[in-house]
Amino acid sequence: MDMYSDITLTVNGESVTRCVESRTNLVDFLRYELGLTGSHVGCEHGVCGACTIRMDGRIVRGCLTLAAQAEGAEVWTIEGVSETNEIRPLQKAFVERNALQCGFCTPGMLLTIAELMERKPDASREEIREFISGNFCRCTGYQAIVDAVEIAREKGANS
């Protein structure tokens, strides 16, 4: 494999072309090359979920994906889905319910939940817990997060 790779991809709706070290993982590329520091690095071995981003419509671990693998892909990060207001009700519910404390897991948690809400809009509390069980939150104990999903869903249905 070459030491460097030329890649072109779409990030948050903008086309991006860069030459990267082939070993660069996607979350490091987003953070240090593009300055999208909303995606966080928690474990670098695919367990904690802090680096969760959306690639071609599905959530992936940014630490287990190489930037080079994102060639031609459509990538969305917390910055992008915030600016499009796509997950605004969920973010509002997180704030209202205090479903974030330090906020380090929050971007990955939100993108994970956004996918759940699309795939299974009527998920039970147990199913919500199961779906986010790959996202480590040290602060909240998760109950507020589950509550926030329900609040966002309720408000979404009433809006």
Partner: peptide, 9 residues
């Protein structure tokens, strides 16, 4: 909190 929820920490 809103800032953190937007990944703007």
């Amino acid at each position: 909190a809103p800032r953190l929820a937007e990944g703007r920490g």
